[in-house]
């Protein structure tokens, strides 16, 4: 029999398994901790910082921090909610996100996150950076304007596809996702059926000729906010 640990999230005691991260334990208990870079099939890397919680008094990314018995976690405090709103705003202004004509609208996790937090316009000034669109691949588009550097594609290619199509290049504010080809995505061994083509939370990796396959209004987040699938499916 597996030993069970007890942890507390916002004064609610829940059971957790050794080796679980805070995020996994919270998910299993029906408690939603916002996240953008984390993906259930991929190794967590803690880059978006949306899932930052206060664990035993210290800020920790819930997606990478393992649980320990008796851990006391703050999740929905006023302070953390404000910081998370700030992070969403930062992601909006550092890229060029035009939801009104983005193919991913309604199933974009960044957009859905903004709606969940009641954001209608970012509080920070738009940076309007000059970013590129890579349409060289016959089946896939790469629109860097919408990239939030979550590196899901990097991990999916390595961990699920057994390839190495993507990697971060540069640093700081000009850091971007590079491709393993001489020039652009068309020079790589990326295939439209790769998992890397499916994991993008925003509209950066877009498959050609299948746009608008689901009409607006019938999309994943059009009726229920992001996170409700976790909050509704409580396993306890």
């Amino acid at each position: 029999m597996t030993e069970t640990l007890k942890i507390t999230i916002d004064n609610r005691e829940i059971a957790a398994l050794p080796g679980q991260t805070i995020l996994e334990a919270a998910d299993a208990a029906g408690i939603y901790i916002p996240r953008l870079c984390a993906h259930p099939d991929l190794r967590p890397i803690g880059s978006c910082r949306m899932c930052t919680v206060i664990a035993d008094g210290r800020p920790q990314a819930a997606c990478v921090k393992p649980v320990s018995d008796g851990m006391v976690i703050e999740n929905e405090t006023e302070e953390l909610l404000e910081h998370r709103r700030n992070l969403i705003d930062m992601m909006f202004v550092e890229g060029n996100h035009f939801c009104m004509f983005c193919e991913r609208s309604g199933r974009c996790e960044l957009q859905a996150m903004a709606y969940r937090f009641g954001i209608t316009a970012p509080q920070y000034p738009f940076q309007f950076p000059a970013k590129t669109v890579d349409a060289s691949h016959p089946d896939i588009m790469l629109d860097h304007n919408r990239c939030i550097m979550c590196a899901r594609c990097v991990r999916a290619s390595q961990e699920l596809d057994g390839k190495n199509v993507f990697q971060s290049i540069g640093r700081g504010y000009t850091r971007k996702i590079g491709v393993n080809g001489e020039k652009d995505l068309g020079d790589t061994d990326m295939d439209v059926n790769d998992r890397a083509a499916d994991v993008c939370p925003v509209g950066c990796i877009i498959k050609k000729r299948v746009g608008f396959d689901v009409p607006f209004g019938q999309r994943k987040f059009d009726h229920k906010p992001i996170g409700s699938e976790i909050e509704e499916a409580c396993h306890v």
Binding site: G46, S47, L87, M90, M91, E94, G170, G172, R175
Partner: peptide, 8 residues
């Protein structure tokens, strides 16, 4: 540039 708060 790895994490959002520091990068932006």
């Amino acid at each position: 540039g790895y994490c959002v708060p520091c990068r932006v």
